[in-house]
Amino acid sequence: MDASWIDISEIYRRYCEIKSGHVCIIGEEGYRQDSDVQKAKLSREALTQLSKFVESRVRTGATIFEELSMLMSRVDLMADISEFSRFYDFVFFMCRENGQKNISVSKALTAWKLVLTGRFPLLHQWCDFVEKNQRYNISEDTWLQVLAFSRYTRDNLEGYDREGAWPVLIDDFVEYMSRISGSCYDNSDCHCNCGDPESQSCVFEDP
């Protein structure tokens, strides 16, 4: 695998392979399924390899977001929830720079707007809030939990549990929302302007 230009679809295909357990490490085909620990280790190594490869590939000049959006048009993300989750993870993977474990706020915002439009009714408010309040980079855990949050909460914040283990940023967001308008969430009309209502109603089932 040389570092020439490779389509993002190919990277995504490999990413999916690693994630689903079909690990393939360059120069060391196959893996022994003797323990979960071993498996996790191999998959982590494979991811590191892939990330190094992504860094070194020749770029066409298209931004990462243009590539992702192209990929979105090709992959059937509507197929099932796990397919989209994997793609969502992949977006984080691609947004990292120089092997960092987190991504910058501005990248995260662009990425959320790209992939969650139509899937997260509070997307607009969420991005607004993060832009104004978050100073540090977005960690992987926060990134992943935002997807879960978007599924739990749907049109209002009822699915949110105060005692739950949500990341601090999400806790703060809920607090901020209830501060700016107390009763607004009972009225689902309020927040439907940020997505395509059809996809909301047919794609997701409550987890």
Binding site: K101, S139, E140, D141, T142, G164, A165, V168
Partner: peptide, 23 residues
């Protein structure tokens, strides 16, 4: 929570993949 998140980022602990309430 902040410290838990910090430790997660340093990969000393992780959130369970299926049950998000578990570490």
């Amino acid at each position: 929570k902040r410290q838990v998140e910090d430790l997660m980022e340093r990969k000393y602990i992780e959130r369970d993949k299926l049950n998000k309430e578990e570490l």
